[in-house]
Amino acid sequence: MTSPWTVNLKSRLAGRYSRFLLQRIGFLLIGNAILLILIYMMIQEGGSFREVVLRAGPNVAPTVLAGFALTVIIYTGAIDLSIGSIIVVAGTVFGVLSAQESGPIVAFVGCLITTCVLCSFNGWLIHRLAIPAIIVTLGGLTFYRGIALILADIGMENFSGFISITNESYQWPGKKLAGFILLFGTLTALVLEWYSRTIRHFLALGSSEEACQILGLNPGAILQKAFFVSGCFLSAAALVYVTRLQTIEPSRMARGFALESSVPWWLEALIFSEVKAVSSERYWEHFFFIL
């Protein structure tokens, strides 16, 4: 007997994704599987295949989670170029709290809340100022890094440009939980993509703001919600990113992070000559990126 899940999966695959796209997904899955086999065959040193894959988790997790965060925003037709700088602020808050020995949980929560709040603030600013997201977040790129330096200077005595994290209990999420956080983030993204109306509203906004308004939706509220949801993913990315570091350097860390997180889109553009980035298909690229 076929389970409802299988039926639903089949109908969703057949209904939502074109044959062409399913072929591409199949091609990429097979291609990635072949790559993994090749890597497996070539690994001679550095531990077993399983260990190598597990070690990759902390490195890959922030980029992929930030990729999900960017995806949510790109659905709405906007962009956030300041995600790297937001992580810097979150990292600085985390660093300051750890230097003040506030306790790991407080530092983690501080990092999560800072990221989420700044992301939501970006959304609010874009909506209120009615300025294109690319302009606002390009400004945020340097602004937030400056804020991070000021925070570090205020929060720490004799701040010398970096904050050392010496207590290993502060590095627990980045070093021990990265894989789980990535898995949880991925599952959340999947559930949101397949079963959430909110994500479809984000896509609707990306398709036509005017249509959303005419059809009775509130485009401003949708945009803000998108930045909040994005902030949630980004906060997970920030937590993994900053807790795997030994030193927090506000002026140097997370440079080019936004670019790195958008690699799946560049891959898409390169491989398929398609740059229309507003489409639910994009989650798939992230899965391949994880692989």
Binding site: N8, S11, R12, G15, R16, V191, W194, Y195, S196, R197, R200, H201, L203, A204, G206, S207, S208, E210, A211, C212, I214, L215, G216, L217, V278, S279, S280
Partner: peptide, 29 residues
């Protein structure tokens, strides 16, 4: 007024409550 990236069904019921599964997810069927 239509959202090109959404399906016909989603456009049809965009601003309304969508049917839900027991656990809260959208019941697409």
């Amino acid at each position: 007024a239509y959202c090109g990236s959404l399906t016909v069904a989603e456009n049809m019921m965009l601003a309304e409550a969508w049917p839900r599964l027991k656990w809260g997810g959208v019941d697409w069927t």
